[in-house]
């Protein structure tokens, strides 16, 4: 499933269209109509929501003026800062964990033949297709007080759900396949010839990995990290089930947006939402840069 999210690195990059007109070109009116349809569709579904977030955050429609003061105040609020901090902590644990897993899984699947490989591959994809609500629910079933380990955890005073570990676990589950799914097709496409050569020349496994494999997959890895991070910081459904909503303690940014919204503070809600939207834009920019660098490094 994620093979699509990851789409483009293992496939050739779109060359800039244009160049010499071909006999097969569409008539001009068709080109214009199709381009217009595509742009209107994307405009309605993608640009408008993004614009709405920033407008609502910064524009006071009643006073017909910008509201930078309240905007900054909403972001400096202690609860907002705590939510930002928790979101960063969560991403800082979940993303590296999935990076290590992704590299190991990609090495395993792209470099070896073994029985059950396609089943393993499907299982890695599974968290993509699972509803975020269910991702939260299953951790409640395992770690909740009436759950499998609930009693034991409680007796030893270990908090998992309604605390940071539960939020990290749910986030890790939701972002589980991103890095692996990015690396597997890339490593398969590259083939193992270089690693094979390094080994025959006497390098050991780790040397081969650090000196040969890693430099080859670095752009793909970075690309996976960025997508994984965007999803980790933005997850709502799964985290909402395991959070407990303790203010200043277990609210992540998306949950804080919901809370502000429920406090008649839609300006504040959109202020925090705009931070998340900025993050999304940054993600898209970084992603484009990486694709561009990757194409260049492939051409040279």
């Amino acid at each position: 499933m994620a093979a699509v999210i990851v789409s483009s690195l293992s496939a050739p990059m779109p060359p800039t269209a244009g160049g010499a007109p071909r006999a097969t070109h569409d008539p001009v009116w068709v080109r214009w109509t199709l381009t217009a349809v595509a742009l209107v569709f994307l405009g309605f579904f993608l640009v408008l929501p993004l614009a709405a977030v920033f407008t609502e955050a910064l524009w006071d429609s009643q006073k017909k003026a910008f509201r930078f003061g309240p905007y900054l105040a909403a972001l400096r609020d202690p609860d907002a800062l705590a939510a930002i901090k928790l979101t960063l902590i969560t991403a800082c644990i979940a993303v590296p964990a999935n990076v290590i897993f992704g590299v190991a899984a990609a090495w395993l699947i792209a470099r070896f033949q073994f029985r059950g490989k396609s089943l393993l591959s499907t299982l890695i994809d599974l968290p993509f297709a699972v509803s975020p609500v269910i991702s939260g629910l299953i951790y409640v079933l395992v770690f909740g007080l009436p759950g499998w380990f609930g009693g034991w955890l409680d007796a030893h005073d270990i908090k998992i759900i309604f605390a940071v570990p539960g939020i990290v676990l749910a986030t890790t589950f939701v972002t589980f396949p991103f890095v692996a799914r990015e690396l597997i097709p890339l490593m398969q496409a590259q083939g193992a010839d270089e690693e094979y050569a390094a080994i025959t020349l006497g390098a050991n496994g780790w040397q081969t990995f650090w000196r040969v494999t890693l430099p080859n997959i670095r752009w793909g890895l970075l690309y996976g990290v960025i997508l994984c991070n965007a999803r980790a910081m933005g997850e709502f459904g799964a985290v909402s089930v395991v959070s407990g909503h303790i203010r200043g303690e277990t609210n992540t940014m998306p949950l804080h947006v919901e809370i502000l919204f429920n406090e008649f503070n839609s300006g504040g809600a959109f202020a925090v939402a705009s931070l998340l939207a900025l993050l999304a834009i940054l993600t898209l920019i970084l992603k484009s840069i990486i694709e561009w660098r990757h194409t260049r490094s492939q051409r040279s």
């Binding site: 770690f143 007080l145 609930g150 955890l153 409680d154 908090k159 309604f162 407990g244 909503h245 303790i246």
Partner: peptide, 20 residues
Amino acid sequence: IKQSHGGSGKQARGVIDGLQ
């Protein structure tokens, strides 16, 4: 004193599941 707010049923569910 920390506060947690939400729908009443949702909050009770949290406590049942171990919200401290």
